[in-house]
Amino acid sequence: MRPSPVFLGILAVAILGGFLAAYGDSSSLLGSKDPMFIAGVVLLVAAGWIASLTLHEFGHAIVAYRGGDGSIAEKGYLDLDVRKYTDPVLSILLPLIFLLIGGIPLPGGAVWINRGALRTRATSMWVSLAGPLSNLGVGAALCLVVALVPMAHGLFYGLSYLALLQVMTFLINILPIPGLDGWGAIEPYLSPQARAFGARVRPWAPLVLFALLFGFRAVSNLLRHVANVIFGVLGGSETASGIGEYAFFFWQH
């Protein structure tokens, strides 16, 4: 169980982005067009989000492994190699593109768990919860780091937006919708009929949610509002995350 070179490379890109954001010119805030600052925020947020997605899937994997599914190690899920989490295009590239287009962090990779090997229903529940809770934990850790960074500092804004994305990822994944982790957490306790219904709609239910998020501003605004409330409780700054978001979507201005 050791970090793969791929994961370390992703972290290196995020660190490079943080360096560029820190030393770029963010003094004009929302009016900043400094290429170094903008490139730094884009690299920091994009690579940081991919790294957090890897940690999300690792969270599922490590809890399943300790809960009885020994096949997890054989599949390479404990190496923090994002390439092992299903198809790289569908699991990583497309969610990243959706993030760049709409600012909504959709669920990405997935680990295949042998639920029958898990010891208890509670273990199965915690396997599902481990992913979104890892995002919430990363968001909280980033907010703590941001608290140590001086205000009006380029790194402050990039990390703030990345932290907010972690909270949004947590909220989306924790919804009790078939195909998402929230449903996986309650599924072991549902009736056979309810589980059968979930299995039937699993391929389509997340697509309906994503259509609502992208097609109806009221739905996406509600998600953003709840995320900002949790973000604020964690100590995040909505103003700082907004500046980071503005830089991340520089081509829209």
Rank of each mutant, 00 (worst) to 15 (best):
M1D: 15
R2G: 15
P3L: 07
P5Q: 08
I10T: 06
I10K: 01
A14P: 01
I15D: 09
I15Y: 10
G18T: 00
G18L: 02
G18C: 01
L20T: 03
L20M: 13
G24E: 02
D25E: 10
D25R: 08
S26D: 12
S26W: 07
S26K: 02
S26N: 08
S28A: 12
L29F: 10
G31K: 15
G31H: 13
S32T: 10
F37V: 07
G40R: 04
V41R: 00
L43Y: 03
I50F: 08
L53E: 05
T54S: 07
L55T: 02
H56A: 01
A61H: 01
A61E: 06
G68Y: 05
G68R: 00
S71Y: 10
K75W: 12
K75C: 12
K75G: 07
K75R: 12
G76F: 06
D79A: 11
D81R: 05
V82A: 09
R83M: 13
R83A: 13
T86P: 12
T86E: 11
D87C: 10
P88A: 10
P88Y: 08
S91C: 10
L94W: 14
L94G: 08
P105A: 03
G108V: 00
G109V: 00
N114R: 09
N114F: 11
A117T: 06
A122N: 11
A122G: 13
L129S: 05
L129C: 06
A130S: 07
A130T: 05
G131D: 01
G131E: 00
L133E: 07
N135L: 08
N135G: 05
N135H: 10
L136A: 07
A140F: 05
C143G: 09
V145L: 15
A147L: 13
A147P: 14
V149R: 07
P150S: 10
H153Q: 14
H153N: 13
L155K: 03
Y157N: 05
G158W: 01
L162M: 11
L162R: 04
L164E: 08
T169S: 15
L175I: 05
L175P: 03
L175W: 00
P176Q: 07
L180G: 03
L180H: 02
L180P: 00
D181K: 01
I186M: 09
Y189F: 13
L190N: 04
S191Q: 09
P192Q: 09
Q193M: 14
F197C: 15
G198H: 04
A199E: 14
V201R: 01
V201C: 03
P203M: 07
L207M: 08
L213D: 01
I230A: 06
F231H: 00
G232R: 14
G232S: 08
L234W: 02
G235W: 10
S237E: 08
E238D: 15
A240E: 06
S241Y: 02
Y246Q: 15
Q252C: 15
